[in-house]
């Protein structure tokens, strides 16, 4: 600003900066000196901070700081502290029976929250974040269990999987009646009608279909069609199915079979996590 442009405010006698908004002028009062000193101190603080902590990018690396401390190290240290604190809970969960964990109020809450987290990480991709399931992937909230819904059953299923790689995995194999030429197309049609009639009272089935069911399906699904858990054969009479309920789907399943796979988690997750998962799934509302 040149000397001529300097304006003096007539009331205060103080020079103005020349900035003016709606006749309001900005006075160019000097700053208090302590304010300036505070500013200088914060600048020094900033440089000291840059010196002590990681700050500058270098060509292949970055300046690590005089203290060599990083937030990442701090997080690791805190995480290992948390793991240590959790250790005692994990040990207790590992050594205790599922029933006992479920009734121990403190452990139950811990297992439930741990299970919830582990479920989100490991199970949600197939079963959904709310365990609501998808076609072919069972809903874990309901009361229909193909392989059993007690704590022990759920724990076993999670540990060894279904059609998994472990020797103890849950395993069954429904024949593909058309592909393996066990039944003709027409026969399959009449069995399908019978299966439909099990859960839908408005459908009437022929006696041929019933006979074929007794001969071919009742061994696993039971004469009443209510399924047998030892074989992992689903209940065909209830309102819930793993796959779609329309007639075409039933025909499709009888013809070509279905065999979904659940991985073996034993060895991939530690025992405390698997137990926590069992307790969490059991708590979703359908646990037996």
């Amino acid at each position: 600003m040149s000397e001529e442009n300097k304006k003096i405010d007539e009331f205060s006698g103080v020079e103005t900066t020349g900035h003016e908004w709606d006749d309001i002028k900005e006075l160019n009062n000097p700053m208090p000196r302590w304010w300036v000193w505070t500013f200088i101190v914060t600048c020094i603080w900033g440089f000291a901070y840059m010196f002590l902590y990681p700050s500058w990018p270098l060509i292949n690396d970055y300046y690590k700081g005089y203290l060599g401390e990083t937030n990442r190290d701090r997080v690791h240290a805190e995480l290992s502290m948390v793991a240590q604190e959790r250790g005692q809970f994990s040990e207790r969960i590992k050594s205790m029976d599922l029933e006992d964990i479920d009734t121990d109020r403190e452990l139950h809450v811990y297992a439930l929250e741990g299970g919830r987290a582990a479920f989100g990480d490991n199970c949600a991709p197939c079963h959904g974040t709310g365990a609501q399931g998808f076609v072919g992937y069972p809903n874990l909230n309901d009361d229909d269990w193909i392989w059993g819904g007690s704590l022990e059953d759920i724990h076993y299923t999670i540990s060894y999987g279904i059609r998994g790689v472990h020797d103890d995995t849950r395993l069954n194999d429904m024949p593909a009646y058309l592909r393996d030429e066990l039944l003709t197309r027409d026969e399959i049609e009449s069995v399908a009608t019978y299966v439909q009639s099990l859960s839908d009272k408005s459908v009437t089935a022929s006696s041929e279909g019933q006979n074929l069911f007794m001969d071919n399906c009742a061994l696993c699904h039971g004469e009443d069609g209510k399924g047998l858990r030892e074989f992992g054969a689903p209940n065909l009479t209830d309102a819930i199915t793993l796959y779609v309920t329309d007639r075409d789907s039933i025909v499709d399943i009888i013809s070509y079979s279905r065999s979904g796979v659940m991985p073996t988690w034993n060895g991939r997750l530690d025992e405390a996590t698997i137990k926590s998962l069992a307790i969490y799934v059991h708590s979703l509302g359908g646990g037996e």
Binding site: G130, N139, D142, A239, I240
Partner: peptide, 16 residues
């Protein structure tokens, strides 16, 4: 909210 409701094997509807 996830799931909004659950259908049970009896056909009944359950909310949590």
């Amino acid at each position: 909210r996830n799931p909004l409701f659950v259908q049970l094997s009896s056909g009944d509807i359950r909310n949590g």
